[in-house]
Amino acid sequence: MTGKSSVLITGASSGIGATYADRFARRGHDLVLVARNKARLETLAARLTEETGVAVDVLPADLTQGPDLAVVEARLREDASIGTLVNNAGAALAGGFVDQPIEDVARLVALNTTSLVRLASAVSPRFVQAGEGAIINIGSVVGLAPELGSSVYGATKAFVLFLSQSLSVELGPKGVYVQAVLPAATKTEIWGNSDPAKLPPMMDVEDLVDAALVGFDRREAVTIPPLHDESLWAAFQAARQAMLPEFRQTQPARRYRPAS
């Protein structure tokens, strides 16, 4: 065991999750790695232990399945050594909304939203009681851009952003840091067997996670690694906040009043 708190990472067998595991291990944190593929987890755990000396526990789980999700929730509630949760597990769906089977849509929503909020809910009371802890939720810029045409996936990522911002407001004053990370297209397995010629330009996963961790160290509430002009996000936030007083109006806006 190290002297630092442990980090539990979901979707840790590859891509963003595996890279977070590598980076936190090199910072001296013990790890709990969660994913469906036990063999991959064990290979990653063995490598990180050999290279960094940290303790790595493997917790195979399919977070769309209630019993598996309950095991991870219990670990977060009961293991006082875990000081950071990385909610990274997620999936996407190909095709348009009318072509996506509802069973696939339901699994996507279960993984991208239900499991994320349940794991955050499992660990938050303990973090609040301790007066410290961190939750990193991996969203996507797609959650800000319905024009990109990824309806259900984008909606789940909009949920991740809203939940993260709300938890930051609620839990931040109690010592719990909540960060939403919004990647754009990143070189991970989420793209499956897509035609490379049809894929957008992509950020390397190592660059994405390293940038996200800079935001983590700065204690940003929202980190958007591909956004070079930070003033655009500041303007977006300012415009949103400027509307808040208007939401307290008790009469409809003039443009919605019936013509007399």
Rank of each mutant, 00 (worst) to 15 (best):
L182H: 14
K157W: 08
F159V: 06
K187E: 14
G215L: 10
L167N: 04
G131T: 09
G175E: 06
F162T: 14
A134V: 11
A184Y: 12
D204N: 12
T156H: 11
G172W: 09
K157N: 02
A180W: 00
V209G: 00
G175A: 03
P183T: 08
V141I: 15
L199M: 15
K187V: 11
L161I: 15
D217I: 10
G149V: 06
K157Y: 07
N137C: 02
K174C: 00
K174A: 05
G143S: 03
P196M: 07
G215M: 08
L213W: 03
S140N: 09
L148K: 07
S164L: 12
V141M: 15
E206A: 13
L144H: 07
T186F: 08
K157M: 09
G215T: 13
P196T: 01
K157C: 04
P173F: 06
K157V: 08
V128T: 12
N137K: 07
P200E: 09
I136F: 03
A180I: 04
A184Q: 10
S166T: 14
G154Q: 12
K174R: 15
E170A: 12
V178K: 09
Q129A: 15
L182P: 04
F127W: 06
V128N: 02
D217Q: 02
L199W: 01
V205P: 03
M202Y: 05
V181G: 00
A185V: 04
A211N: 03
V178E: 01
F159I: 05
A197M: 02
Y153V: 11
A212G: 15
T156W: 13
S140H: 02
G139W: 02
A145S: 12
V142H: 01
L199I: 05
F162D: 10
L208D: 02
D217M: 10
V128S: 07
P196L: 02
G215F: 13
E189Y: 00
L167I: 03
N193S: 14
E132S: 14
S150W: 14
P200F: 10
T186R: 12
T156K: 09
S164Y: 11
K187H: 08
P146T: 03
Q179I: 04
G172V: 06
